[in-house]
Design a binder for these strands. Structure first.
Length: 464
RNA sequence: GGCGCCGUACCCAAGUGGUAAGGGAGAGGUCUGCAAAACCUUUAUGCAUCGGUUCGAAUCCGAUCGGCGCCUCCA
């Protein structure tokens, strides 16, 4: 039984898709005005873990938007003399490259905002007709006073909103400061615009998610995700727009990922602690290490990103890698050791239970490491058997489907005649007690990235 | 000011009423010609502090201290 923390209630609730078969999930994607940063990626990794876990139980229809029209994009495209499409396209492509490096699976449907303008216009029309929207100047606004449930998600009541909200009195002539824009009339002749019955302009940010989510997933979604900063105002406004238009609940489960901090502080360009994936790769960190670190802390807890943490992630991955290597290369007898078999089934159960428990990835990883420890002892005693090995390797494939953090094995065990020959020469030297030569060969191999280990069963090697 | 999250060993981090998972690091040991590898063992009478409830609390309640986030574009 999967339980997830629903922001709407603040509590863990059992999750089952409304039609018992297909999970309809929407996640807020990037605004492609620049490269995404490691904090953005934490959220996408959390959503990836959620999607992989859901997919192990039900079919999944996952929609993610690409915000390719917004103030920042317009500003920068004007500055660089490009149209918005050619300005944003490279960042959009870069985003998918970053996701691929971090093994984030692609959603079934990806929706660029600029390809859904008619749906947005339609939604505005419905809101205008029902009195939830109004025109002021040449723009269209949402009338929050018409929507009594406003603030339910973010638990802000109206009075406090008024105090907290900063008023943009110069720019907008809204009925109330907290009202938000649905359709923006152009202010600058260079701004992109679309024709609409209520005048040319462009969509407000909140509108796109409502329009695109409902187009592809229906009026009530099972799950809607995003970072905690989106709870207010973005998701609150999505609810207001969608529910005003349909009269139905927009989302059953709102699930929000906490922020990533860097060295205990909010990431900000001005603090110099702002990292993109590219920055980290340039520093020599591996995508898998980064993903491991992001996965190792549960999504609803702030994650303090540090370089020490990355090094620890590397060490933890090495432990997994070493175990798989040892398991694969061990000489084992046919049959099955019942002690190992029961340890494995316990590990499996704990792993699934942990993920079912609101995606407790820390506990899921712990279950994996407990099994590794138990198996290492059995391996040392030479009591692990062929069936155990096959079952364990099979399970690690499952783990990799779920968490995508298992180091690839192929290059670890691939044969290399040159290396084998050098090892043979080294062992010859060792037999002759010519340790100067054997150490020289070991160093030579190490320089080539090959690590030698002398074990009771002979010398084995792997690439670093 | 309002709303919310968090504080567990040297570091990261599970555990939300039954007596402290896991990873890293350190220390011992095994193996080895040696070892940098690997493996094993070990490291919190204690869970920010103080008080309360309870047979029993890291877990519930209250207060205090500290950190973070949102209330404005933001994952």
């Amino acid at each position: 039984m999967l339980r997830l923390t629903n922001t709407l209630t603040g509590e863990q609730e059992p999750f089952v898709p409304q039609d018992k078969q297909t999970v309809r999930m929407y996640t807020c994607g990037p605004t492609v005005y620049d490269f995404v940063h490691i904090g953005n990626l934490r959220t996408y990794v959390f959503e990836d873990i959620l999607r992989r876990h859901l997919a192990s139980k039900w079919t999944i229809k996952h929609v993610m938007n690409i915000t390719d029209i917004d103030d920042k994009i317009i500003k920068r495209s004007i500055e660089t003399g490009k149209d918005i499409k050619s300005y944003s396209a490279p960042y959009s492509a870069a985003f998918f490259e970053d996701c691929e490096k971090l093994k984030i699976q692609k959603p079934e449907i990806i929706t660029p905002a600029t390809e859904h303008i008619p749906e947005m216009i339609d939604l505005i029309n419905r809101l205008l007709e029902s009195g939830y929207a109004y025109r002021e100047g040449d723009s269209i606004y949402y009338r929050i006073s018409r929507f009594p449930n406003y603030g339910r998600l973010s638990k802000l009541d109206r009075r406090e909103l008024k105090i907290g909200a900063r008023i943009d009195a110069d720019e907008y002539e809204k009925e109330e400061p907290r009202d938000f824009v649905l359709w923006k009339a152009p202010k600058d002749p260079r701004e992109p615009r679309w024709e609409a019955p209520f005048g040319e302009g462009r969509p407000g940010w909140h509108l796109e998610c409502s329009a695109m989510a409902m187009k592809h997933l229906g009026e009530t979604l099972d799950i809607h995700c995003g970072g905690v900063d989106n709870i207010f105002p973005h998701h609150e406004n999505e609810i207001a727009q969608s529910e005003a238009a349909t009269g139905r609940p927009f989302v059953r489960f709102w699930i929000h990922g906490e922020h990533l901090l860097v060295e205990g502080e909010k990431m900000a360009k001005s603090k110099g602690n702002f990292f993109t994936l590219r920055d980290l790769l340039e520093k020599g960190y591996e995508p898998l290490e980064i993903r491991y670190l992001l996965v190792s802390v549960r999504y609803r807890k702030q994650l303090n990103f540090t370089f020490d943490g990355l090094r620890e992630a590397r060490a933890a991955l090495d432990r997994i890698k070493e175990f798989l290597f040892r398991l694969t290369t061990a000489k084992v007898k046919a049959g099955s050791n019942p002690k190992v078999a029961s340890a494995l089934s316990r590990a499996r159960e704990e792993f699934e239970a942990a993920l079912d428990d609101d995606l407790n990835t820390s506990a899921a990883l712990a279950a994996v490491f407990v099994l590794i420890g138990e198996c290492n002892i059995v391996l040392s005693a030479g009591e692990l058997q062929e069936d155990n090995r096959a079952e364990i390797l099979k399970w690690f494939k499952v783990i990799d489907q779920r968490l995508a953090i298992i180091p690839p094995m192929e290059q670890l065990v691939q044969s290399d005649q040159e290396v084998e020959a050098l090892i043979a020469r080294r062992n010859e030297a060792r037999r002759n007690r010519d340790f100067a030569t054997s150490d020289r060969i070991r160093q030579e191999l190490l320089d080539r990235g090959v690590l030698i280990e002398d074990t009771r069963e002979g010398t084995r090697w792997r690439r670093k």
